[in-house]
Design a protein around this nucleic acid. Structure first.
Length: 476
RNA sequence: CGGGGCGUGGUGUAACGGUAACAUGCACGGUUCGGGACCGUGAGAUUCUCUGGGUUCGAAUCCCAGCGCCCCGACCA
């Protein structure tokens, strides 16, 4: 009896983090393993989360004038080869179609790992005049990258994302877009995911293959490892050159435009799961939760069900679900909805009904509060906001507590061996030091924070002169 | 690609070389329900234990080969 009971429990987050991560995804119904290695099925509950993220981002893109379009899944291999860095970066992880309709293809087709090349091939055709710029297009799609070591959400062979590709007349305008895109992501992470991180620039070795510079938002996971939350790239004229993008400017001269691209993938769900979840399961921030409130009638009594329906109506501005099921005990239901991470639970029993009250249970703190039914709507609103805020604060606190200023390489090694986390340290920007540090500590340069002050210091590794402190961490 | 683990009802497991069992889940009926309740009935492996060989009177079990998945590394805008 006891044994079976325990089997249904999750592994403790603190005891076996990676097993907990898998358990919580499978048991909460976010996703399931697919029959193909490295591939997963995103189940309705997980897809609901993704849809909420899509909705938020899509709205912001449209406000900015970015329009959605769709480009093909297959990319002629030769397109990818046009930009040297690009093909070098992606070739190890490409899936390639060699047979079509039963016949060997003369020109192999790559299943897109990202769509720069096929999109820019089209852009070259569409852009003629300065009047065609800026060209601001986004697509929601799937991409395939044949990674050796897949992990649910974090690195699946096929994943979903959004990739925006913009073309501008001037470099200033392109840089403004790169900045806007990153800030937009950061805002979404903070306001909706309730996750804080560090935004800044990638090192030469870590940037996107083919980009001039890459900006990113680095998030710290509870196990001390870092996760890149999104990317925003300044492509300069690299691809414009490779794909022969030109336009006639107002002055009648033919010019080469400047490009950017930026993306966010379903990997962000991995961050969401890890950052907020606890031993009981997921904890979803109210703004993204597919179900914000679950109402549980303690008994399947008619008057309780009736009341639950009334309450749902009162709370119609929220995403509410009533648990009508009769099969399970109340304890079972509580646990089930906790695994699913629903931010707020409303318990409704005869006791509450008699007192014209409801019992509210917060998922983030476990706290139970008795609320008068009359003021329910306002109270619920406030509590959901409080949960959202609390989650962000927790994330901030964790980030702060686990970002350490280090000047001695011995300390650096020690920290990376034990608790990990972010390390702030001077780096001379020599790739050799970067490589050595990675070899010796598994940590890589994650990001140069935008707010890093100009200072005088010595590289943590080689002791040569360095001007900025970079953030190091072990990456997912 | 290296190391490890595992392939048996949907899931988790069991079975000395002797002819697949238990739990859970599922379906139906009933009793329950304030933190993972219970009773009864039933379906579900089924050319039976991932595939292909071998040993044997007899293989889920032993041997060989392969395949697959998971975990840990290496790799990874």
């Amino acid at each position: 009896m006891k044994k079976e009971f325990e089997k249904k429990q999750l592994v403790k987050k603190s005891e076996n983090f990676s097993q907990w991560y898998i358990d919580v995804i499978l048991k909460s119904g976010l996703a399931d393993y697919a029959p193909v290695k490295g591939c997963q099925v995103i189940k309705p509950y997980g897809y609901g989360l993704w849809e909420n993220i899509q909705r938020v981002l899509d709205e912001k893109f449209k406000e900015k004038g970015i329009k959605n379009a769709y480009f093909p899944l297959f990319i002629p291999e030769k397109f990818l080869k046009r930009e040297k860095e690009h093909i070098k970066g992606f070739s190890p992880e490409l899936a390639v179609v060699t047979i079509g309709g039963g016949e060997e293809l003369k020109e192999k087709l790559v299943v897109r790992p990202t769509s720069e090349t096929i999109i820019y091939e089209m852009y070259a055709k569409w852009i003629k005049s300065w009047r065609d710029l800026p060209l601001l297009i986004n697509q929601w799609c799937n991409v395939v990258r044949w990674e050796m070591r897949p992990r649910l959400f974090l690195r699946t062979t096929e994943f979903l994302w959004q990739e925006a590709h913009t073309v501008h007349q001037t470099e200033e305008e392109a840089l403004e877009m790169v900045k806007w895109a990153l800030e937009n992501y950061v805002n979404v992470y903070q306001d909706f995911f309730a996750i804080d991180g560090i935004s800044g620039q990638k090192s030469e070795s870590e940037k996107f293959p083919g980009a001039k510079t890459t900006q990113t938002f680095e998030i710290l996971m509870p196990d001390g490892k870092a996760l890149q939350g999104c990317t925003s790239h300044d492509l300069g004229q690299n691809f414009a050159q490779a794909f022969n993008l030109k336009f006639l400017d107002k002055d009648g001269k033919e010019k080469m435009p400047y490009q950017t691209c930026f993306g966010l993938s379903t990997r962000c769900l991995g961050a969401l799961i890890m950052v907020h979840g606890d031993d009981q399961g997921l904890i979803l921030p109210p703004k993204l939760a597919p179900i914000q409130i679950v109402i549980i009638p303690i008994l399947p009594a008619q008057n309780l069900i009736q009341k639950a329906k009334e309450l749902k109506n009162v709370l119609k501005e929220f995403r509410v679900e009533i648990d009508f099921t009769k099969e399970h005990s109340i304890g079972w239901k509580f646990n089930e909805w906790e695994i699913k991470g629903v931010p707020l639970r409303i318990e409704l029993g005869q006791k509450e009904l008699k007192e014209k009250k409801a019992t509210l249970a917060r998922r983030d703190t476990g706290q139970k509060i008795s609320i008068s039914l009359e003021s329910l709507e306002n109270e619920v609103k406030e509590i959901l906001e409080a949960i959202q805020k609390n989650l962000l604060e927790r994330s901030r606190k964790f980030l702060k507590e686990n970002t350490k200023d280090v000047s001695d390489y011995r300390d650096f090694k020690e920290i990376m061996k034990k608790e990990k986390g972010f390390i702030k340290a001077f780096w001379c920007q020599n790739p050799k030091c970067e490589a050595k540090i990675k070899e010796e500590t598994k940590a890589t340069v994650r990001v140069l924070p935008f707010d890093a002050p100009e200072e005088k210091g010595k590289c943590i590794y080689c002791q040569e002169t360095a001007e900025k402190k970079w953030i190091f961490g072990q990456a997912y």
